[in-house]
Amino acid sequence: MPARSKAQQQAAGAALAAKRGEISPSELQGASKSMYESMSEEQLREFAATKRKGKPEHVHK
Rank of each mutant, 00 (worst) to 15 (best):
M35W: 09
E46K: 09
A17H: 02
L44C: 08
A49T: 14
G30D: 09
G13F: 02
G54N: 09
S32L: 04
K51Y: 11
K33S: 06
L28R: 10
S24N: 14
V59D: 06
R52E: 12
Q8T: 10
G54I: 11
A3P: 06
G54T: 12
P2L: 13
R45M: 13
S32F: 03
M1Y: 13
A49H: 14
H58V: 15
L28Y: 04
S24P: 01
V59K: 13
E46S: 13
A17W: 08
Q10D: 06
E46C: 00
K61W: 09
E41D: 03
M35C: 00
M1H: 12
S38V: 00
S40W: 05
H60W: 08
L28N: 02
M35P: 00
A12D: 07
A11V: 02
A18E: 03
P2K: 15
R45C: 05
A15Q: 01
V59C: 13
M1E: 13
G21T: 01
Q43M: 10
A15R: 02
A15V: 08
T50K: 12
F47W: 11
Q10E: 15
A48F: 10
Q10A: 14
A14I: 07
E46R: 11
S5H: 10
R20V: 13
P56E: 06
A12C: 03
S38P: 03
A48M: 09
K19N: 01
S34N: 05
A3R: 04
H58F: 12
A12V: 07
I23G: 05
A17G: 03
S5I: 06
L44Q: 02
P2M: 10
V59I: 11
T50S: 15
G54F: 07
M35K: 05
A31F: 04
K33M: 09
E46H: 04
A7T: 12
V59H: 07
M1D: 15
G30C: 09
M1N: 08
L44R: 01
K19R: 14
A3D: 05
A11K: 00
E42R: 08
A12Y: 04
Q43P: 05
A12K: 08
G30P: 01
A14K: 09
E41K: 12
S24V: 12
S38Y: 01
L28W: 07
A7I: 05
K33P: 01
S32A: 14
A48G: 07
P56N: 06
A17P: 04
S34W: 08
A49P: 15
A18R: 00
A18M: 02
G30L: 00
A31N: 04
